[in-house]
């Protein structure tokens, strides 16, 4: 019996040691080449906009791989890997370490088109309302409602939307200012747009990478916006955008192309129409890049390079007494 007892007690440690055989080798390493290969390959197989942006990723590899060398510092390696990612010209692409974050800076592709203090001093006045993420007031002799929406924080709700839209229900039109809105929670997009449609509306399509090839995507799936069962705004709406309007801001701008009562005005948006996906490198740094494509109603992915305005207007920095973009919107609503 003692023998059997010892056998039973001995089998378990043997089984547990099988873990080492069962599991794959830990990828953790600080080796520059291994980390470079891992990151390049992840992008190569999963990034969604190589063809739209006409990026030769193999050529990028050749260029940046040559910058690796034995014994390079963490900072040097970061600059090589971050520089490689910057070639994707996409602010949904970042390399993140505890000492630096790489970015492209799409807003610098166009001029600055928004001066917040000028709007507060010359249009909104000090008595403007702040309802959740919305800053708003009557402008132009109380004939127009102006709503500043600086980001998509995920806190848009029925209470703040009801209050804003009810307040301006008798205006000639509404100006939604999304300039320099860098995006955020996608859920806010549909909560806002549902207040500006009267019937279920197809706004765009979306598809996601499902294989390593450049054109390995899922079927394009339709995106619909349904009308909110409550307060909606039915008069004309002008949405102001610029190069700083990014990600969720660009998604909203893209959707307006299918909504006849909304005019997009200002500068081309920054794009950012791919859902960013996160991962971790063998050396512990993390990264993200786009893995989906948002498509127009004719199933083009070109708006990743920016959603063009219906009316192009630029801010004149030689005249800081007025906002030309806002003035043009007011004119359009008169």
């Amino acid at each position: 019996m003692m023998m059997k007892k010892h056998i039973i007690l001995a089998v378990l440690p043997i089984l547990i040691s099988c873990e080492k055989v069962l599991f794959e080798e830990d990828l953790a390493t600080t080796d520059p080449k291994a980390n470079f290969e891992y990151l390049w390959n992840e992008c190569n197989e999963k990034y969604s906009y190589f063809e739209v942006k006409q990026i030769d990723w193999d050529a990028v590899k050749t260029e940046y791989e040559a910058k690796l060398f034995e014994g390079m510092t963490q900072d040097s390696l970061f600059n090589v890997l971050g520089g490689m990612l910057t070639e994707l010209r996409d602010d949904h692409v970042n390399l993140i370490s505890n000492f630096n974050v790489s970015f492209f800076g799409v807003e610098f592709l166009g001029q600055d088109n928004f001066y917040g203090r000028l709007i507060e001093e010359n249009y909104l006045n000090r008595d403007y309302y702040i309802s959740g993420p919305f800053g708003h007031n009557f402008i132009s002799n109380d004939e127009i409602g102006y709503v500043r929406f600086a980001s998509f924080p995920g806190t848009v709700d029925d209470t703040n939307l009801d209050f804003v839209l009810d307040r301006y229900k008798d205006t000639k039109g509404l100006i939604l200012d999304l300039r320099e809105n860098g995006g955020g929670a996608v859920s806010d997009i549909f909560k806002i747009l549902s207040r500006f449609v009267e019937e279920k509306t197809l706004t765009n399509y979306s598809r996601i990478k499902n294989g390593p090839g450049r054109n390995d995507f899922s079927e394009a799936e339709p995106v619909y916006v349904s009308p909110h069962n409550g307060i909606r705004y039915t008069n004309k709406v002008i949405m102001l955008v610029d190069r700083g309007t990014y990600s969720a801001g660009s998604f909203t701008a893209l959707a307006t192309k299918a909504l006849p009562n909304i005019i997009l005005m200002g500068d081309t948006t920054g794009g950012g129409l791919g859902l960013p996906n996160g991962g971790q490198l063998p050396n512990g740094w993390t990264y993200r890049f786009s893995i989906t494509q948002a498509l127009t109603l004719d199933k083009s992915a070109e708006f990743e390079n920016g959603v063009p305005p219906d009316i192009r207007v630029l801010f004149d920095w030689n005249d800081l007494t007025k906002d030309e973009v806002l003035e043009r919107a007011i004119l359009e609503l008169q």
């Binding site: 996608v186 799936e221 995106v223 989906t292």
Partner: peptide, 13 residues
């Protein structure tokens, strides 16, 4: 999860 370890349903509303 599928190939890219993420889904797109919330982009589809």
């Amino acid at each position: 999860n599928g190939y890219v370890y993420s889904g797109q349903s919330f982009l589809l509303n």
